[in-house]
Amino acid sequence: MADWVLKGLARGIRTTGWPARVEETPGVTPGRPGAVSRDDSPADVGVCPTHALEQSARGIAVDFGRCVHCQRCRGEGGVPWQDDFEWADWSTQSRGPLPASFRRSINVRYLDAGSCGGCMGEARLIDAPSYNLHRFGIFLTATPRDADVLLVAGPVTEAMRTPLRLTYEAMPEPRRVVVMGVCAINGGVFGQSYACVGGVDAVIPVDILVPGCPPPPLAIIHGLLLAAGRAEAASLERAP
C-alpha cells in the first residue's frame, strides 16, 4: 500500500511565493507584446492577424484585449515582449470589488461557455500545487447558489447563452463576473458568428476582464483577487 501522506509531505512546498515574492520563472506566462515608441522599433503592425497592434504618431500601441499570443510580432524586426502576468482590469460597467466582508474568502463558480482546452487547462491549474488557489481563501463550488464570483471562459456559444444567463440569475447578491481569455472579452479568434455570441457582456454584465489566450493561472488568480479587493488592476491597453 502506497503511503501517499508521507510521500506528499516529503515533496515539500512547491507553491510559488507570489504575490509576496516576485515570480519570474520562465514559462509561467506566455508573455505579451509591449508598446514601443517610434524610435525604438521598426515593426510592421500588419503582421498581427487580430489587429492588436496600432500604429500611431507616437509609436505602436497594444490592445491586450485582442492579442492571442500568436508570436508573429515576436523576435527580430518585431515588438519586444514582456513576461508579466498581472493582467486583470475592470470593465467599463463594473461594480467594483465585492464588499469588504468577502475580502478574505470568496466562492467561485467556473463556467465553460465554449472554451478550448487552453483556458480549461489553465483554469484547472489554478488550484494545482504550483499556484494553490486555496491559500487565498478562494474556493471553487459546483453550484451557483453558493457562488460569489462567476468565472467565465469561452466566446459564449449560442447553445451556452441560456445556461450562462440561468447560472448568473441563480447567483445571489452580491455577485461579480470575471471573464478570462480574449474569447470571453470579445469573441477572440471566433468573433461573432452564427454559433458564437462574441463576448460575455452581450449576455450578462461583466465586471473584470482577464485578457490572454489563454491567460496563465497567475493572471486568473490576479483577476479573482481583484474581485475580492486584494489586488491592483492593470490596463487592457498600453500606449507608447
Binding site: T143, P144, M160, T162, L164, L166, E169, A170, E173
Partner: peptide, 14 residues
C-alpha cells in the same frame, strides 16, 4: 427581508 424567488437550479438546462 430581502427575498428573491426563482426557479430551481437545473444545471443550466432550459
Amino acid at each position: 427581508l430581502n427575498v428573491t424567488r426563482g426557479d430551481p437550479w437545473g444545471g443550466g438546462l432550459h
